[in-house]
Design a protein around this nucleic acid. Structure first.
Length: 514
RNA sequence: GCUCCAGUGGACAAACGGUUAAGUCACCUGUCUUUCACACAGGAGAUUGCGGGUUCGAAUCCCGUCUGGAGUACCA
């Protein structure tokens, strides 16, 4: 087999959502696995849909995900340019060639005339009539018009397009790596536009010409392209490139959590769930789409999660390093059915990666989320907190919610019920003694604190339930969390003393007001 | 409507004609901890969309049917 060359070919019409990233990922994984080349091609043939900044977004998003490109607009390569608008001049000649060979024709119909045709031919059985072998005879094109009529149109500089001439009653079969043989009847195809009035090619034309000259070996793309593939096969055939036609591989769609329809950008915004790798701001529409990065996901976790949406290695292993993923990946094992997007599973993957990350590294990742709240802890302190809290947060963003008491004072208590029920003002003096005895410890280590507290409880004939929850609340504001002795040790004796003092006072007040 | 694709516990899925249909997430219980999380142990949840057929044997092959999705643009 010739060398593997695959491309990811998005349109710069906005941010790339998670489905696009997964398509890029499978292309990337396949390229790396086979020692092939991974290419990014920007498909910007529709000038009306061009969105400022989208191309840069795509580049940055792929970078954040760690999907390194071998050839791209940024990096260049021997098969450039990599932006279709920069390749504009290449396409017309092949469309013209098809006309010359009798496989395409010029058409002069206005959009209104085409709408009119569809309106006229519409029946309940066929609500979307095609521009095809059956209808083209009644339209304005070089197949239906006389030489004089065509000349008149051309002399008047009537805008024209080029359409593919699809012959009726042909069976078109192609092999798809995930679906096997797929067959379409040419009667179902319409005479697709190849070259638009503005001289730009349509997706179909540009795609085939580019894939051919970029020597693409495998077209790995979303399932939404499956039904236009027979048109593409025809194009390869009529252009005389069928013997080097790439292999097709149509990936299952990523569905909304309810399984109804493919995941959309609006869905994520509606549910407050990230469906984009990184955040996207559209100032003109005043829209903000949240990203996995900003929500505190690690790129490796997102990639691992995405890899499993539509593929699995057939073993029980689920957590993979980026390299491990490359080794394990296999297009043959890609699923046929669409997979629903499940943010819960994404969070689980992220937690797994957080737990694996060493504290110093984790501290660096978490730092922006802490600094965003106005705190500048030392690396050492932050690392200590991370070490302790590691398995208690699913996203970097959650870190703050679960660990804020390491950085700022406790101002409220998440469990006032227990205070009203079980805080005993008559034990207050004893609690203050506890405070002093902890504070007198020579080494403020978790073990020392723990034995001191336990000793105290025994001596005073108190119960753990009368003491521990209140220490916890006073120190951290919550009854949940890591070992309270570890927490106290990290905070230090001074801070702990201060918090106990304040907490006990607050508890009295809460009790009084109850 | 038409064409194509798909349909295994709530979600992701394994099993590619052969014992009681793996495993993960989510859920519940227990151990640990007077907390939470992690970890470990256990539990509940599936007549493989439905109906036929082929076969000694079907989630797997065939036919039909239903449901869902995609496409049906001078958008990609």
């Amino acid at each position: 087999m010739s060398k593997v060359r695959v491309r990811f070919a998005p349109s710069p019409t906005g941010p790339l959502h998670i489905g696009g990233i997964r398509t890029a990922l499978y292309n990337y994984l396949f390229a790396r696995k086979t020692g092939g080349t991974f290419i990014l091609r920007i498909e910007d043939t529709d000038q009306t849909r061009y969105v400022e900044g989208a191309e840069q977004y795509i580049l940055n998003a792929l970078k954040w995900c760690g999907l390194e490109l071998d050839e791209s607009v940024e990096k260049g390569g021997e098969h450039g340019p990599y932006r279709q608008s920069d390749r504009k001049d290449m396409y017309a000649q092949y469309a013209e060639q098809l006309v010359k060979n009798g496989h395409a024709y010029y058409a002069y119909d206005t959009p209104e005339e085409i709408d009119q045709m569809r309106e006229n031919l519409k029946t309940p059985e066929d609500p979307n009539p095609k521009y095809n072998f059956a209808s083209r005879g009644n339209m304005k094109n070089t197949l239906s018009l006389s030489a004089e009529e065509i000349k008149a149109l051309d002399d008047a500089n009537t805008p024209h397009i080029i359409r593919l001439k699809v012959e009726p009653n042909e069976e078109i079969t192609f092999q798809d790596i995930v679906r096997g043989d797929v067959t379409f009847s040419s009667n179902e195809l319409d005479d697709k536009v190849l070259l638009k009035t503005d001289g730009m090619p349509t997706y179909h034309m540009a795609n085939i010409v580019d894939d051919h000259f970029m020597e693409i070996s495998h077209v790995i793309r979303g399932e939404e392209w499956l039904s236009s593939t027979p048109t593409h096969v025809l194009l390869y055939r009529y252009l005389g490139w069928e013997d080097t036609m790439p292999q097709f591989c149509h990936l299952p769609l990523i569905l909304k959590p309810d399984g109804k329809g493919k995941l959309s950008k609006r869905y994520g915004a509606k549910m407050g769930i990230p469906v984009f790798p990184t955040e996207w701001k559209d100032d003109t529409k005043n829209e903000l789409f949240i990203g996995f990065r900003e929500e505190g996901f690690l790129p490796e976790a997102v990639i691992n999660f995405l890899a499993f949406l539509g593929w699995n290695p057939g073993t029980e292993q689920e957590i993979f390093t980026p390299d491990g993923l490359i080794q394990a990946f296999d297009l043959e094992r890609v699923n046929k059915a669409g997979a629903r997007f499940d943010i819960q599973k994404a969070r689980w993957f992220n937690q797994q990666y957080i737990m694996q990350t060493d504290p110093a590294q984790l501290a660096a990742l978490v730092r922006p989320h802490v600094e965003g709240r106005g705190h500048q802890p030392t690396d050492e302190y932050l690392a200590k907190v991370c070490e302790l809290m590691k398995e208690r947060f699913e996203t970097l963003k959650d870190f703050w919610a679960n660990s804020r008491y390491f950085f700022e004072e406790v101002t409220e208590y998440d469990n006032e019920k227990i205070i009203r029920k079980r805080w005993k003002p008559e034990n207050r003096d004893k609690m203050h003694d506890l405070k002093s005895s902890i504070n007198r410890l020579r080494n403020f280590t978790p073990d020392n604190i723990e034995s001191q507290v336990k000793k105290f409880i025994e001596e005073q004939e108190l119960s753990f339930g009368e003491v521990l929850p209140f220490i916890r609340l006073a120190v951290s504001g919550t009854t949940k969390g890591a070992s309270i002795f570890e927490i106290m040790s990290i905070l230090g004796e001074e801070e702990v003393a201060k918090r106990l003092e304040r907490g006990f006072n607050d508890f009295d007040k809460i009790k009084e007001n109850a």
